[in-house]
Nucleic acid binder design. Sequence first.
DNA 1: TAAAAACCCATAAAATCCCATTGTATCCCG
DNA 2: CGGGATACAATGGGATTTTATGGGTTTTTA
Lengths: 162, 162
Amino acid sequence: MALEHLFQGSALNAVDAKGRVSIPAFLRSVIERRGDARTITLAKHEAFPCLSAYDPAYAGLKHAKLERLLEKEETNPEAELEYQQRNLMAFAATEEVPYDSSGRIVFPPMMRRNGQIGELALFLGTGETFQIWNPQLLLDEKRIPEDLKDIARFRLEERGQS
Amino acid sequence: MALEHLFQGSALNAVDAKGRVSIPAFLRSVIERRGDARTITLAKHEAFPCLSAYDPAYAGLKHAKLERLLEKEETNPEAELEYQQRNLMAFAATEEVPYDSSGRIVFPPMMRRNGQIGELALFLGTGETFQIWNPQLLLDEKRIPEDLKDIARFRLEERGQS
DNA sequence: TAAAAACCCATAAAATCCCATTGTATCCCG
DNA sequence: CGGGATACAATGGGATTTTATGGGTTTTTA
């Protein structure tokens, strides 16, 4: 693994009527330092009711890792099936979207539903990747530490006042 | 290995009365970034009841890979036979079709039957290649993860409403 | 010459681009 | 160090371009 630049920080942005959202500038700057792409890949998170997001550099690493796993166990038919399934999840079940010169993506409807994202999108850096949450779902999730919920509450208040 | 651009995402497109289908633009853009061709190669998938599809750049890689395998085990007569068989499958059992300026191919009847494709074609990116499914067969396939079936269902709904 | 294949045109919906506005953080200079 | 000036981030709205798809017409080919 070993990606040099890591995603960190949080932000709460609006999703407009066309489904557009600004990717926070501090996340974009990490993407652009990792590579020269201006796209993000969206996937349903495996554990939480939110989306997982990352850049092409991370996607490439993930793919290489899968390939290595396969070659190690090439002759095992069960390994072959598992490889097929993982590959489908990694690529078919994800969507790559470019962001424009003002840093916005338009949310693919499928991902918006997968992540149950409404009019507000909470961005959370998690190192190699970042997450996008419906802030209310994060507050409702018992597996999320209270301190993190406080951050979400703060971001909500911040927005409520302005 | 190491193809720089990977096939990713999903789409459900109509097959019209003449057997024509649009190749989703996001898949075409990968093909055209990998090389300057505007064709795809179709084959029956080895494990699933669907078609496997790729571009000329990948076909070249696949051929090189087979060659390498053969050289490694040159003195083994069984390896020689396996090479002949794989080679036949990789080249004789496939069809290469060009797509036109609007991004459509006409489905070769043999492949349409091999993949049991009806009036709808579900495209699934799988990294180095992509798959084309009859969406109903995917929903019926027990080896396919439920999350992926959800995507197929979403694509079907999306189309049903319009 | 009839069936099939390739080509061309048309169109509605969706995706993309472009410009405008506003609020906020940063800079600069006296 | 204060106060404006500047730059950038986030967002709204309209205009333009692509995409997916249907249908007709010409050109092969057998």
